[in-house]
Structure formats: C-alpha cells, structure tokens
Simulated scan of single mutants.
Amino acid sequence: MTPGSNIPLSVARVTVDVTAPVRLDVSGLLLTADGKVRSDDDFVFYNQPNGPGVTHRAASGATPDAITVDTAAVPAAIEKIVVTASPDAAGTTFAGIEPTATVRADDGSVIATFTPPPLGTETALLIVEVYRRNGAWKVRAVGQGYANGLAGIATDFGVSVEEPAAPTAPVAPVTAPMPPAPVAVAPVGAPPVPAAPAAPPAVPGKINLDKGRVSLRKNETVSLVKGGKPLTRSVKMGLGWEPAWNGRAIDLDASVIAYGPDRNMIDACYFGRLQILGGTIQHSGDNLTGDGSGDDETITVHMGGLPPEVTGLVFTVSSFNGQKFTEVAKAYCRLLDAQTGEELVRFDLTGSEPKTGVLMCKFIRQYSGEWEMTAMGDYVKAKTVRDLVKPAAQAL
C-alpha cells in the first residue's frame, strides 16, 4: 500500500502486526466521528491491552507487537481504529527504522502491507487505520509522523497525556545507557554542540505560512497552514519562463494532474481542458511565446472545494513542440492568494537539462486534512500531459 491508499476488508476480524529493526511500543486508538477517543479506555496498549473490539498483543520472541480489531464487536459510536507506534528507547527517532504494518486475517493470510516513506525526526507514527465507511470496513495506509512522540498523538486524539506517558517512564531508565542512538555520533567528537544544527536539515523547509512569503529550494516543503488553520481559500499557481539567451519564442504548457490515494490519475487540467473537478481547478489558457514579465500561465485551485478523493496534485510544465529546457530561462512557480494576489510561496528553478518536461511542485493532502507543497524541479521526457501522468504519479 502507499500513503493514503485503502482497501476493503472481506473479513470481520483482522490483526495488524507491526515490525521494525528496533523494539516498539504499539497501540490502538478507538475514535469517534469527531476524531477523538470517548475516554482513556479507548486507548489500547500494553498496560491496557483490552478495549471494546480491540486488543493489544505484546511482542514475544519472533512474534511482533500487534493490534487486533474485531469489527463486529466495535461499538457503533466508533468510526475508526488507528494503529500507532513509537520506538521503545527514549529519544529514538524513526530515521532509518521505518516500521512495516502487515494486516492479516485470522488464518494468517496477508491482506495488505504498508511501510511508510523514509522518516526523519518523527518519534511516533500513525501507521494504518481500520475504519467504517457506509457500513463497510476498510483499512487505510496513513504514515503520519509526530516529532513530539506519543504525547503528541495523545493530545491530538483526546487521551490524557499522563496516561500514555506513564508506561514509558519506567522503560527510560532501562534504556538510559542507549541514548547514544540519537546522540552517539556527536559525543564521539567532543563538540556535540555543533552536531545539533546538523539535525534540522533532516526535514528541510518543514514550515508554514505564518511568517509571510516562503521561498523554497528543490525538495523543500511548506505546510499550507496559516494561523493554525489549513488553507481552504482559493489560490493560484503561477508558472513563468522566458526564452534563454534571447532565443526564439518558447511555447511551454503548464498543467496540473490530480491523483487519488492509490496514485491513480483522477483528472488533468491544461490548455485543452481549462476546467476540471466541477470547476475547483481552472486553467488560464495557453501562452504561445513565454515573452513578457509575470506569470505566463496560471492555474487556480479552490482548496476548500477539492473532492475528498483528491489526495495529490502535481504541477508540471512541458514542451509540446519539443523545445528543451536548456532553451528556457528563469522558470519558476509561485503560489498566490487568489483574492488578494499576495505571493505565499515561490520556487525558482535552477539548472536545466535537455529534456522536454519538468515536474515543478506537488501538493499532498495530509492525514490531518491540511495540504503540504513540495518544490520538485525534476526533469522528465514529456511533451504532453499524457506523457507526464506516470512520472508524476511516481513522484507522489
């Protein structure tokens, strides 16, 4: 499975095994429609292994930690059971030790497996969720990380922080000699302090819009959140370019491809299809030369109106006539507030390759509902939107 993808469950009872190269604390949270537990009794973990329809199995020998969900016994008020994990050793992050969730039927047969993409400073993780939709049960891959450990998850879902924190406290002294895991390399060289600044680049550019315009570099990410609230108003993605070295007119085409949770293309908006998804995405029309200052083409996205099945947007530029990006100068994309015209995020493409397409940036809908924008700048062989569908999907 990939992040955000889901599959229906054909059996009433499933077990989610969670494995990793290190010992884990695995738990299950029973959530109502508002995304909260009803009480601390809906938090199932090794010190409280039984909940209504949900049980915890502690690791033993070759048997991993697991959460079992008997959907027939889950209370009607519960809409989803989220399976979480955190490293048992205090202070350890998931960098390089990404866990794998294996969903099994009672007979041991594998229904699905999911390993999240590479992680960094996360110390707790929502791995998968078993959820109810229109009377049927499904399982969804999540992969949402928290840098503030189990306490961060508890706070988000309404569990008293003291309850989940207490079980881990006795473990910390046992593993206290092992803090070398996060600090090991630094203490070897006497100056551990210089090592601290090296940590932030592990999650480059993970910022929001609170401090004004954000300038991104390749592979950096900004959370489209302002004042603690996800961006739901209309935005414009402006894309611009100029002919290089006073060369001939350059005819490039900007487009955006919308994807679902399985990286399946839902629709594409470009010069030949100026409006998609009920008008929630609109294209300004074709620019045939690239001459002049300002945006050459714009794509408006009504963020609050995007259908829930859309979980990814990839903005691209391609050359239908085969002109390569070595003939293009000053290519960029910038995100604007559609109402005020305020520039929110900008990414200037640096370097070039003799190819006919480029993946400029992508929007990914997070498990919590907000969107994140990541600068890409990846060159591909593509002249049309159809050529871009596969490489864009692979980049999600």
Results as ranks from 00 to 15, higher is better:
A329Q: 14
T63Q: 13
A382H: 08
P180M: 12
F157P: 00
A59H: 11
G341V: 04
S39Y: 02
D34I: 05
L388T: 09
Q48D: 12
Q144C: 00
V128N: 02
L388W: 08
A141T: 01
L252I: 07
Y46A: 14
S352C: 06
S109D: 09
T384K: 05
W241I: 08
P354C: 06
V174P: 04
G377E: 03
V11S: 00
D251F: 01
P187T: 15
S223G: 10
P194E: 11
K390Q: 13
T63F: 06
P8S: 03
V110Y: 06
G61Y: 07
Q366I: 00
A382P: 01
P204T: 12
G285E: 04
E353D: 06
T32N: 15
T316P: 08
L344C: 05
L125A: 05
R23H: 10
F94K: 04
N287E: 12
D387C: 02
D42H: 04
A392H: 01
R104S: 10
N264P: 00
V11W: 04
G96E: 09
P230K: 00
L274T: 15
A181K: 11
A136P: 01
L388C: 14
V82C: 03
G158L: 02
A20R: 09
S234C: 00
E129I: 05
T168D: 10
G377D: 04
C361F: 01
E370Q: 12
V110K: 14
V225P: 05
L349I: 14
T311D: 08
P201K: 02
A105D: 10
N321F: 05
L9C: 06
D17Q: 12
V159G: 04
G312I: 00
N287Q: 07
A331T: 14
I7A: 00
T232K: 04
D253E: 05
I67F: 13
L150H: 04
E242W: 15
A176D: 14
P191F: 13
V14E: 11
S39A: 12
G120S: 15
Y259D: 04
V142G: 05
M1I: 09
D387R: 07
A12G: 09
R273L: 10
K390Y: 02
A105R: 01
A124T: 05
T280L: 12
V317W: 03
V130Q: 04
G108K: 10
V214D: 08
G91M: 09
V380C: 01
V128W: 04
A254V: 09
K206A: 15
L252R: 03
G260Y: 02
I276K: 03
A375I: 01
G304F: 14
D337L: 07
E372D: 15
P187A: 12
A244D: 08
A395Y: 07
A77M: 08
L336G: 02
D41S: 15
V18H: 02
K362N: 08
A254I: 06
D156M: 12
P21W: 03
D156Q: 15
V358M: 06
L126E: 15
P191Y: 13
H283S: 07
T221V: 15
V188T: 11
G369E: 04
L29W: 01
T84Y: 03
V358D: 07
T115E: 00
H283T: 09
A331N: 15
